[in-house]
Every structure is written in structure tokens, then in C-alpha cells.
């Protein structure tokens, strides 16, 4: 550069400078920095919303395990759920999230009717019992891979993948996993529950059809999340999904959520 020559020192020049100095003494910055990097499109990322067109329900147990599906569950005023509905909901769930997935505030407070999933729902138990499908010797590998049993992204690798059209050698094992997991969960539940027709070991959340979720609504000005209600739970699970699988699986709404998380990360 060359430092720009001082502007013509017109009559007002010194006075304007004095005025600025007084502002400086009052704490006004003398240098402004322009922030331009990707502000605009990224801001529009914050505006994103997604629509859940058909009714979507979420079942959460005391450990924070969660099932997402479209089945219904009868609920008493006390909040107890019909056990057989619960079993069938779990069986037909589209997604199963492992223990710890649903944040505390979404879980049932207590569980007096026996919790049928406690036994095998803890941390990594659900991984190690199975043969490692790919022959990896790291048993631990299966822990992380485990939750995908109900999130069949490898069935649909490539955009043409139709349900059930398993594209590669991994998917077979994913499928086995899925069935193994479910069979076990169900059997156990039946055994434990015996005759009890109602259970308070779960909470049931419903999202009606055509619900629009704008993740940014759950975001406070300082970037922390304040999730509540069924939609908040949905976002929490989407976040969990994102943590594990990234954006590949197409969990509904995930791109929108990711765009916001990216915004927070890259702004």
C-alpha cells in the first residue's frame, strides 16, 4: 500500500476526528471487520425446515432406547401404554436407536411394570453377542455398526436402490443383524411382561402428518439446543443418527439439521 493520503483537511476534519475520539473513549470500536464468508447462503441454511408428510410416532424406554414407526399405541390417561401395542410397534419400527439415544427429558420417569429391554439394552451388549459380520476381529467394531440394523442405508446404496435391493456384500449381514435384534427384543419382552396388559416403561410421542419442523426454532441465540416436545425428540434422534452415520442415510430431515450444525461449525 501505500497508506492513503489524509483526506483534505477541511474545516470539519479535525472536529470529526475529535468526535470519533470521544466515541472511542465511550468504547465504540475504531475498526470494523467485515464478515463475509458464506454468510448469506449459510444463513438460509438456518431457515431450512422439513415436512413430515405422514404421521410418525416415537416410542422411548427408560434407557433412552427409541423406536420410530407409524404404528399406533393405545394410551391410558395415566400415560400407561398397552403392552401388546408396544410390542407390535417395536416390531414394525422403521428405526431403532440404541440405549441412550433419547435425551433424559424424553424418557419415562419411572418404570414399575418391569423393563423388558434393560437386560440387553445396555451399552455394548447388543453388539458383542453376534458374529462380526465382516469378519473383523475387532469386536468393538460391531458396537458402532450395531445401530444400523434398522437403518438400511446400505440396502439402498446408490440412488436406485429399492427397498430390499441389497447392493453389496455388507448388507446381508446388516439384515441378519436386524432380524436377530428384533427377535430377541420381542421374545424377551413377552416373557417378562407375562400377563401385564399395560406398561409405564415407555413414553409415546406422536407427530401428526404434514408437521413442519424448523430446527432453528429449537436453537437459542447462543447456539445451544433447547429440544422439547415430539418434534424436539425427533431432532434429538436425527442428531444421534447424524453423529453415527453422517448425512448419507437420508434419515428424514437430516440434511436440514446438518446444514444447521454445519452452520454452527463453520460460521
Amino acid at each position: 500500500m501505500v497508506v492513503a493520503k489524509l483526506q483534505e483537511k477541511d474545516k470539519g476534519f479535525l472536529e470529526r476526528r475529535r468526535h470519533l475520539l470521544r466515541l472511542g473513549a465511550a468504547g465504540v470500536p475504531m475498526v470494523l471487520t467485515l464478515k463475509a464468508s458464506a454468510t448469506e447462503p449459510v444463513h438460509s441454511a438456518l431457515d431450512c425446515a422439513f415436512v413430515i408428510p405422514s404421521a410418525t410416532n416415537i416410542l422411548v424406554d427408560v434407557d433412552g432406547k427409541a423406536w420410530i414407526g407409524d404404528g399406533d399405541i393405545q394410551e391410558k390417561n395415566s400415560g400407561e401404554l398397552k403392552t401388546s401395542d408396544v410390542t407390535s410397534f417395536k416390531q414394525n419400527a422403521e428405526f431403532v436407536f440404541p440405549s441412550g439415544s433419547a435425551p433424559d427429558q424424553f424418557r419415562p420417569d419411572e418404570c414399575s411394570t418391569g423393563d423388558d429391554d434393560d437386560y440387553w439394552g445396555n451399552d455394548c451388549g447388543w453388539g458383542n453377542d453376534y458374529d462380526e459380520p465382516t469378519g473383523d476381529n475387532d469386536d468393538q467394531g460391531s458396537c458402532q455398526a450395531d445401530p444400523d440394523r434398522n437403518t438400511p442405508w446400505f440396502e439402498e446404496e446408490g440412488e436406485d436402490g429399492e427397498p430390499g435391493n441389497r447392493g453389496n456384500s455388507y448388507s446381508g449381514s446388516g439384515n441378519d443383524y436386524q432380524h436377530g435384534g428384533k427377535g430377541k427384543g420381542k421374545g424377551k419382552g413377552d416373557d417378562d411382561d407375562g400377563g401385564s396388559a399395560w406398561t409405564d416403561c415407555y413414553k409415546f410421542y406422536q407427530i401428526s402428518s404434514n408437521t413442519t419442523i424448523s430446527p432453528a426454532d429449537y436453537l437459542s441465540g447462543n447456539g445451544s439446543w433447547n429440544l422439547s416436545g415430539a418434534n424436539g425428540l425427533y431432532l434429538a434422534l436425527a442428531g444421534k443418527y447424524l453423529d453415527t452415520y453422517g448425512n448419507d442415510g437420508g434419515f428424514p430431515g437430516i440434511s436440514c439439521l446438518l446444514s444447521i450444525l454445519n452452520y454452527l461449525e463453520y460460521q
Partner: peptide, 14 residues
């Protein structure tokens, strides 16, 4: 259509 969405919520596009 996002991969999974085709199966789950069939009416979305990305």
C-alpha cells in the same frame, strides 16, 4: 429422492 426417504417417507426430494 434421498435414499432412505424413498422407503420411509416417500414424498421427499433433495
Amino acid at each position: 429422492a434421498p435414499n432412505l426417504v424413498r422407503r420411509y417417507i416417500r414424498r421427499q426430494i433433495v
